[in-house]
Simulated assay, not measured.
Amino acid sequence: MLAAHKAGPDRQEGLSMDKQEFRGGMSRLAAAVNVITTGGAAGRAGFTASAVTSVTDEPPTLLVCMNRNFSGAEAFAANGVLCVNTLGAGQEDISNTFAGRMSGEERFSVGEWETMTTGAPALKEAAVSFDCEIRDVVEQGSHKVLFAEVKAVRLGSDAGGLVYFNRNYHLVR
């Protein structure tokens, strides 16, 4: 739990950040492009995310941020599993499909999919896939923060990574 901070000489009480200024700053924070998927009795769903990071290796856990208004959020909650599919060079079309307006199952028309340990869809050509069970969910503002314990990892091609920076895709070799 974070300790509460009091306003001091360097911080004014009630100071708020402009939403557009914050988003502009965040656009300069380069991040890997991931497609987060779920599968199970509640069906398949997925979305594109750059807000993914490791939390700990004991047990191996990832943090994934998902917009609470995402139409597939209920499938993630009901299935209790997810797969973080980190995209590589040349996979912008997959990112755009999962970020677009297609419905849940239609999104899986791009790429080749299989399952690993949990049954969540894993992209065969991903740079890496982390197959996970959701252990905890914390709601913060417009998002749900999913803490997911990694059950299996599959390494793909080492052809380069896909990152999002300054509102554009870039390749990392």
Rank of each mutant, 00 (worst) to 15 (best):
Y164V: 05
D136E: 15
R101A: 13
L123V: 08
S27H: 00
V110E: 12
V33L: 08
T118G: 13
R44H: 10
V33D: 11
D136G: 13
L162I: 04
F108K: 06
A75R: 15
N67Y: 07
S129D: 07
H143E: 04
G40Q: 07
T53S: 15
S157W: 09
A120W: 10
A32S: 15
V128E: 11
P121E: 12
T48C: 04
L123Q: 02
S109Q: 09
T37C: 03
A159H: 09
H143V: 01
E92L: 03
A126L: 11
R44E: 10
P60E: 05
V84P: 14
Q91S: 00
G40M: 02
T117N: 12
V84C: 15
T61M: 01
A152V: 14
V163W: 02
D131T: 03
V163R: 04
D136P: 14
V35L: 04
G80I: 07
L62T: 01
A31H: 06
M116A: 13
N67V: 03
N96E: 06
G111M: 11
E112R: 10
G88N: 05
Q140L: 13
L155S: 15
F70A: 15
F108E: 02
L87H: 06
Q91E: 07
E133K: 15
T115Y: 11
T115S: 12
V150A: 00
E92H: 07
G161H: 05
R44P: 09
M66C: 15
S50Q: 08
S157H: 13
E58K: 07
L82Y: 09
E125M: 15
V64T: 05
D93S: 14
E92G: 05
R44Q: 14
F22V: 00
R154V: 09
V145T: 07
G88R: 05
C83F: 03
N79C: 13
G72L: 05
V35H: 00
F76Q: 04
E58V: 04
L29H: 10
N85W: 01
T56H: 00
K124R: 10
G160S: 05
E139K: 06
V163S: 03
A31G: 10
E74L: 12
E139G: 12
A51T: 00
S27R: 00
G39C: 14
A51K: 04
T86E: 13
R44D: 08
T48Q: 07
T38A: 05
S109E: 09
F130R: 00
F147E: 06
A45I: 03
C65S: 02
T86F: 13
Q91R: 00
E92D: 06
V35W: 00
G39L: 06
C132G: 05
V33R: 11
A122D: 10
C65F: 03
G100A: 01
N67R: 13
A122W: 10
G46D: 00
C83E: 08
N85Q: 08
Y164A: 04
